[in-house]
């Protein structure tokens, strides 16, 4: 039976596609961010999305999210790792500061979560706590897994990422169970714009994505810290020679990636049922977009993400059982085209 596409359905699918595309754009941006600064192809980005959604769902059920506990655990491990590796970290001043950042911050979030969880204070409290708990996983993961491998090849880093992905999915199952969750929408309003009916939730997603893109653009283009991160990506030794602490560049990149991942999770949780392993497929769609942008271009990656969202929406209308296949097939012509016309750019001498 042929499905008939009329203008109402087109508008509905387009809205759906653009909204999902905006979330993929956030993921693509994080992947590009992490890759350009650390050369890590960050497969577990999707897990941050699932953790974000499920952490918020835990708050809604009045449960202390295990994510906050994990953040404390990883913080302790990262600090111990520092103490073992680096004698300078054992100096009292450094130790106090290290403990405050690695353990103090996640403990504070855990304490706040324990207070907030049973009281149902609503999204204004629960969303920031969710974002904080997940964002704190980023720097600890970087320090534990990727910093010791900082000089390793992209392939080794990729394999490490696969390991982190499997570990986080396993922990996700342990923490949240096999059941899927959906959270209350941030907005239940609907607006009639011409012939289209736009939901408040879509506007939230688009608004947050747009705001984040502008914030990232301003940060990288107009602040010294942003430029220092960019410089670390362009030339690591050069960055060290001007005194940029490149190890903290990696930590900042991972914190931002975890934060953006959690934010994506919070945004999709009201529209999709999220399971402990949902993140992987969502992350891969962001990855398709990032690849179209060559893993280095923020604007291309973001634009490609919207395209991925639209293709997915229309594919699910015409051939819903093949929608994932169709989305991932986009990557083939892109890779062919890239491999044919790749220009080898010599950066130095």
């Amino acid at each position: 039976m042929e499905a008939v596409l009329d203008s109402t359905i087109v508008l509905f699918l387009a809205q759906d596609g653009v909204t999902n595309g905006a979330v993929y754009a956030l993921l693509a941006l994080s992947l590009v961010l992490v890759f350009t600064i650390t050369r890590v192809i960050f497969i577990p980005q999707g897990e941050f999305v699932a953790y974000g959604a499920l952490t918020l769902a835990a708050f809604e059920r009045g449960v202390i999210p295990p994510t906050a506990l994990l953040a404390v655990g990883l913080g302790v491990a990262a600090l111990l790792d520092d103490l073992i590796r680096d004698p300078a970290a054992r100096r009292p001043a450094r130790l106090v500061r290290g403990a405050a950042v690695s353990i103090g911050a996640p403990l504070a979030v855990l304490a706040a979560a324990a207070v907030a969880a049973p009281r149902h204070w609503g999204p204004a409290v629960e969303v920031p706590l969710t974002l904080a708990a997940v964002a704190l996983l980023g720097p600890s993961l970087y320090r534990l897994v990727y910093r010791p491998l900082a000089e390793a090849s992209v392939l080794v880093l990729l394999i490490a990422s696969v390991g982190v992905h499997l570990a986080l999915v396993g922990l996700g199952l342990l923490f949240f169970g096999a059941e899927g969750f959906r959270t209350a929408p941030l907005s239940t309003a609907t607006y009639d714009i011409g012939p289209a009916m736009v939901t408040g939730q879509s506007l939230w997603v688009l608004g947050v994505t747009a705001a984040l893109i502008v914030a990232l653009w301003a940060f990288f283009g107009h602040t010294l810290t942003g430029k220092a991160l960019q410089a670390t990506a362009v030339n690591r030794l050069g960055a060290r020679l001007v005194g940029i602490p490149t190890a903290s560049a990696g930590q900042i990149a991972f914190t931002m990636a975890a934060f953006i991942g959690a934010l994506s999770g919070v945004l999709i949780a009201p529209v999709t049922t999220v399971f402990y392993d949902t993140g992987f497929l969502t992350g891969l769609k962001g990855f398709v977009a990032a690849i179209i942008g060559g893993l280095v271009s923020f604007p291309l990656g973001a634009a490609a993400a919207v395209l991925v969202g639209l293709v997915e929406a229309f594919a699910s209308f015409w051939a819903s059982s093949f929608k994932e296949v169709i989305v991932f097939t986009i990557i083939i012509p892109v890779l062919l085209w890239r491999s044919i016309r790749t220009v080898h750019v010599e950066d130095e001498e």
Binding site: K227, A231, G238, E348, E349
Partner: peptide, 11 residues
């Protein structure tokens, strides 16, 4: 100032 200059070429 290193032998290879180590500039931020794209910036």
């Amino acid at each position: 100032v290193a032998e290879k200059r180590e500039l931020f070429a794209t910036m």
